[in-house]
């Protein structure tokens, strides 16, 4: 797979591709925790309803609730062990002399190439969770709304370095719309 066409398009060899921090997995797993709790709550509620009412149709309600709960739990588990780690490990970026490459996605692969001269804003942001984990999201904004260049899960010090480096390169190569 090292020199397959896929490799050449979405992960050009010979470049220094940098992965995002594994800590991003923790941040991305948090919403799944919510899903997990929701599933457990559903399960408990379904059982409670089934126990309370002996009436006809109670079985059906119970089955419905356990079905929903099972779906939520399976979703949470699959997301936890399968989707999140793969998504995080697929998120990579590389700095070239003239442009920045961001590659992401497993099921749907995406690559964005942004010439430094086109960058208008470089944004470093962190929500409370990622701040606690010491990671930040670096977003590059161009004049185009469809440019999708977000790098989440960059360690804070690396993010600051990256921001400064990009800003310097951008300034040197500034261009209009």
């Amino acid at each position: 797979m090292s020199d397959s066409p896929v490799q050449r398009l979405f992960a050009e060899p010979g470049l220094e591709w940098r992965s995002v921090s594994p800590k991003l997995t923790i941040e991305r797993r948090l919403p799944l925790l919510g899903l997990l709790l929701f599933g457990l709550a559903l399960l408990a509620f379904g059982r409670f309803v089934a126990e309370q009412s002996e009436a006809a149709g109670a079985d059906l309600t119970g089955a419905l609730f356990s079905g929903l709960a099972a779906a939520a739990l399976v979703g949470a588990v699959v997301g936890w062990f399968f989707v999140v780690p793969r998504v995080v490990s697929a998120w990579r970026y590389a700095e070239r002399e003239q442009d920045l490459l961001v590659s992401r996605g497993r099921l749907v692969r995406r690559l964005t190439v942004i010439p430094y001269g086109r960058m208008q804003v470089i944004e470093v942001s962190a929500n409370p969770v990622s701040a606690r984990l010491g990671i930040a999201t670096v977003t590059l904004v161009t004049a185009s709304a469809s440019t999708d260049a977000r790098i989440p899960g960059v360690p804070v010090d690396v993010a600051q370095e990256l921001r400064d480096r990009l800003a310097a390169k951008g300034e040197a190569l500034t261009a209009g719309l």
Binding site: V6, F10, L107, V108, R110, T112, P115, S144, T147
Partner: peptide, 17 residues
Amino acid sequence: RVQSVSARQGPVQRRLG
């Protein structure tokens, strides 16, 4: 006027290269 260049590949597209 090009701001950035992107590529995208869905699962079916991957099958077909």
